[in-house]
Design a protein around this nucleic acid. Structure first.
Length: 245
DNA sequence: CTGTGGATTTGCT
DNA sequence: GCAAATCCACAGG
């Protein structure tokens, strides 16, 4: 605990002194590690097609409240839409595209729930279910800008005190690792329940310009423009943050 | 019951 | 730039 506090203090000093590389300058942590005041998103927010929800989620906050610890939180800067089997044309990249299975059943349930799955035996990916109950569709959370609980994120991700902002939660696997999100504990969780450990908040922040690209790392439907990100944000995944478009 | 391959990350070359 | 790491859902026999 003592040590964590020191790590966080050191990180904040670096930020204040401007010692971090230029590519980190978009980080929004300099003054506080406490969560900005915000409210839970309403269920209706998610009862729409995933491409619409993905856009709207940019700028919103994902927070993990582990008992006895300070909240870990980040602002969503990148997300992808995966469409349900009711859509035309179909989306063969979506886990739900062949209909309900034991793994993907949460996608066919009520909106605003977490769909967490493991991939490549090493990592987890986190999605938010969309569409009215009975229809599948979801948004994959691909990158966060660190907001609070930086020390815990650093420990979860095995990062040193000089780590750049984008190393914490840029990429779906990193995002889950940073917030300690796992399939067994978080799959199916209601993200809009006040008693839930994992929540989606709106603090009123307005996102800037949004860029749209094809989704990352898929084989099928690789051309559909269903990836959304905040333009120029340093924490967007990929070799460099996405420029204009 | 078994074979297969994936919405990824990391480290080494 | 490429390959290894390494789990499990699911389809097919």
């Amino acid at each position: 605990m003592e040590q964590n506090a020191e790590v966080e203090a050191g990180r904040l000093e670096n930020l204040a002194a401007g010692q971090l590389p230029a590519r980190c300058r978009f980080i929004i942590v300099p003054t506080a590690t406490t969560l900005p005041p915000g409210h839970l998103l309403p269920r209706t927010f998610f009862e729409f097609p995933p491409e619409r929800v993905a856009r709207l989620l940019l700028g919103k906050i994902l927070v993990q409240r582990i008992k006895g610890r300070k909240p870990i939180a980040g602002r969503i800067v990148e997300a992808e839409a995966y469409l349900g089997p009711h859509r035309q044309p179909p989306d063969p990249a979506a886990h739900s595209h062949r209909g309900p299975t034991p793994r993907n059943q949460v996608l066919f349930g009520a909106a605003g729930h977490a769909y967490v799955y493991s991939i490549y035996g090493r990592y987890f990916c986190m999605n938010v279910s969309c569409e009215p109950e009975g229809r599948a569709g979801c948004v994959l959370l691909r990158a966060l800008e660190p907001l609070a609980g930086i020390d815990q994120m650093a420990r979860n991700r095995n990062l040193g005190p000089t780590a750049a902002a984008r190393e914490f939660a840029s990429g779906p696997g990193r995002l889950c690792q940073a917030l300690a999100i796992e399939r067994t504990t978080h799959n199916g969780l209601d993200l809009l329940d006040p008693s839930s450990t994992l929540q989606l908040l709106d603090d009123g922040a307005r996102p800037g310009r949004i860029v749209v690209t094809p989704r990352i790392g898929i084989r099928h439907a690789a051309d559909l423009p269903l990836r959304f990100a905040l333009a120029g944000n340093a924490c967007v995944s990929g070799p460099k943050s996405m420029g204009r478009a």
